[in-house]
């Protein structure tokens, strides 16, 4: 878990604490912030392994989803609101096998309305220009 870079971004510690029990069980942490958007990281471990030496598709999806919620939480915190977030749907595209290396994920908020948000999330490993998976999420805010 990287917590050494608290100074460069937002309150990393607070957001690590805010990660869901599920995210923590996957070994997910906030790596850093880029323009106020959290970059989520998860090291390769047996808990995320599917096919030997590769990430399980479900684990990759969990990382994408967590990055989506984290980005939305940050944006909402900036607006001074804390609604409950409910998933509407997620579509994950798997582009390449995620190997036994650390996975990073970062979301882009395409629409932030009053009731719903639409996000695009990208996950990559050593080469950021070659994402291993992308996702589109719709989230309801109540």
């Amino acid at each position: 878990m990287s917590r050494s870079d608290d100074s460069i971004g937002g309150p990393v510690g607070d957001h690590v604490a805010a990660l869901t029990p599920y995210a923590r069980s996957l070994g997910i942490a906030v790596d850093r912030y880029e323009d106020g958007v959290p970059v989520i990281t998860v090291p390769f471990a047996s808990g995320v392994e599917g096919r030997p030496g590769h990430f399980h598709g479900g684990a990759t999806s969990g990382v994408l989803e967590t990055a989506g919620y984290a980005a939305l939480r940050c944006a909402l915190t900036e607006r001074g609101v804390q609604p409950q977030l409910k998933p509407i749907n997620i579509t994950v595209q798997f582009l390449a096998a995620a190997k036994n290396e650390t996975v990073f994920a970062m979301a882009r908020i395409n629409k932030l309305g009053r009731r719903n948000a639409n996000l695009t999330v990208e996950a990559w490993q050593s080469d950021r220009s070659r994402p291993v998976a992308t996702a589109v999420m719709n989230i309801l805010m109540v």
């Binding site: 029990p21 399980h56 969990g62 989803e65």
Partner: peptide, 10 residues
Amino acid sequence: ASGPIISLMD
């Protein structure tokens, strides 16, 4: 969480 449901269905 919704993540494990994706894993389950995958």
